[in-house]
Amino acid sequence: MKHKPSIHFAICLNNQGYEASLEVGKLYQIIDDEQAQGNGLIRIIDESGEDYAFSTQRFYPVELPQNVEAILLATV
C-alpha cells in the first residue's frame, strides 16, 4: 500500500480583501487543520507570520520534491 505524501505548501491565487496578509503567486506553508478542511478552509502561515484559515479557493496546493520541502520547512 503506497502512502500518499502530505502536501505542506500552497500557492496563493487570490488575495482580494487580504492584500496585506497574502501575495498572489507566493508559496505559503500549510498547517494541518482537519476542522478547517471540513469547512472548506485551508490554514496557512500568512505575511504576519501567524497561521490563519482562508478559503481553499484562494490557494493551489503543490507537492514539492522531498529535498526541496525539507529545506523550506527547516527555514520557517
Rank of each mutant, 00 (worst) to 15 (best):
T75I: 13
P61T: 08
K4G: 03
H3L: 11
I31E: 11
L13D: 00
S6Q: 13
R58N: 07
Y60D: 03
H8W: 06
A10K: 02
D51G: 00
S21M: 08
E63C: 08
E47W: 00
L22F: 00
L22T: 00
A70F: 01
A70S: 15
S6I: 00
Q57H: 09
T56D: 08
N15G: 09
H3M: 12
A70K: 15
L72S: 04
G25N: 13
N14W: 02
Y28P: 02
P65G: 07
I45V: 10
E34D: 13
A10C: 05
N14Y: 11
D51V: 00
A70D: 10
H8P: 03
A74H: 08
L73W: 02
K26P: 00
I7S: 03
T56I: 10
A20I: 07
Q66F: 01
Y28F: 07
E34A: 11
Q16T: 07
I7K: 15
K2V: 15
V76C: 07
I42W: 10
G40S: 11
L73Q: 11
D46E: 13
L41A: 11
Q37W: 02
L72T: 05
L22V: 00
R58A: 06
L41W: 03
S48L: 10
I42L: 13
E47L: 12
V76Y: 12
N67L: 04
Q16N: 06
G38S: 08
P65W: 12
S55D: 12
Q66V: 12
T56E: 13
Y18K: 13
V76H: 15
Q57G: 04
I30H: 10
I31T: 03
Y60N: 10
V68N: 03
A74P: 06
A36V: 01
I71E: 13
